[in-house]
């Protein structure tokens, strides 16, 4: 389908999982690949077609309730995303995509659903108000900035590390962590789109497939990062109001 030298980014079910401008994550990867002289193809995989197995990076975005369940049905049948990751592909999930990649998630119907199991994570529901606002976290790839809008939390198992250490916002809902990393699978509650706003994270995803890349500075993105970081820091509370109550109930 695609020449060996090219990089293929697969946008998984954009018609269902595109609520938060998730196409932007694919565009950001392509821009940063182009800047290094890498030929990068974007493939949009529709829910009615079999998911391509030959992708290098799979992006699983955010979706509204009904759309998320449709996507879940599509991804469960065929095991193709798991096969692609086993074969060496990287995968990045955002919001609903994060939950779909996990071992188990509480669906919009309030019922527990078996996830794809690519992350040793159980995603439940925040028992307070919806988490909405600018988020700031520290990470190994520079600070992470994004906008969160979710009712889900994330309980990380032993096999998974957090993507970032929370500075502002709710993230995984434990007051400390944001997102998850397990091998070549990364996930986050942040949009913005998050790979546009976080050049270091975008490069990390690419490098999982390409190996080390030359530095590339994008001044407009760097300015955006500083602006959004300042916006997150101006949020009144670093943590979610219901956090104290949650901590005492944590399983």
């Amino acid at each position: 389908m695609v020449a060996d030298s090219a990089l293929t980014v697969v946008l998984v079910y954009p018609e269902l999982l595109g609520t938060y401008g998730d196409r932007g994550n694919a565009v950001a990867l392509r821009r940063r690949a182009d800047a290094r002289g890498l030929d990068c193809h974007l493939v949009e995989a529709a829910v009615r077609d079999p998911l391509p197995r030959t992708g290098d990076v799979y992006l699983v975005g955010g979706g509204e309730d009904a759309a998320m369940l449709l996507a879940w049905e599509g991804l469960r049948s065929g095991h193709r995303l798991q096969d692609a990751v086993d074969a060496g592909a990287a995968c990045f999930g955002v919001c609903a995509g994060f939950q779909l990649l996990s071992r188990e998630f509480t669906g919009p119907d309030g019922e527990p659903h078996e996830g794809l199991g690519l992350l040793d994570v159980r995603c439940g529901r925040l028992d307070g108000p919806r988490a909405v606002g600018e988020v700031l976290a520290d990470s190994d790839h520079g600070f992470l900035t994004g906008f969160e809008n979710h009712q889900g939390d994330a309980h990380l198992g032993a096999g998974t590390a957090p993507l970032g250490r929370l500075v502002r916002g709710v993230g995984n809902g434990d007051g400390r962590t944001e997102g998850a990393v397990q091998g070549r699978v990364l996930a986050s509650y942040l949009h913005g789109p998050v790979l546009v706003r976080n050049d270091g994270l975008a490069d990390r995803l690419l490098e999982l497939v390409t190996g080390p890349l030359a530095p590339f500075r994008d001044p407009a993105v760097l300015r955006l990062r500083q602006e959004r970081r300042a916006a997150a820091l101006s949020r009144p509370g670093a943590r979610h109001p219901h956090l104290r109550r949650r901590s005492s109930h944590r399983p």
Binding site: Y20, R23, V132, E134, F147, H191, P193
Partner: peptide, 9 residues
């Protein structure tokens, strides 16, 4: 609105 992510759509 505080989240302009949709600009990418």
């Amino acid at each position: 609105g505080r989240d302009p992510s949709w600009l990418y759509d």
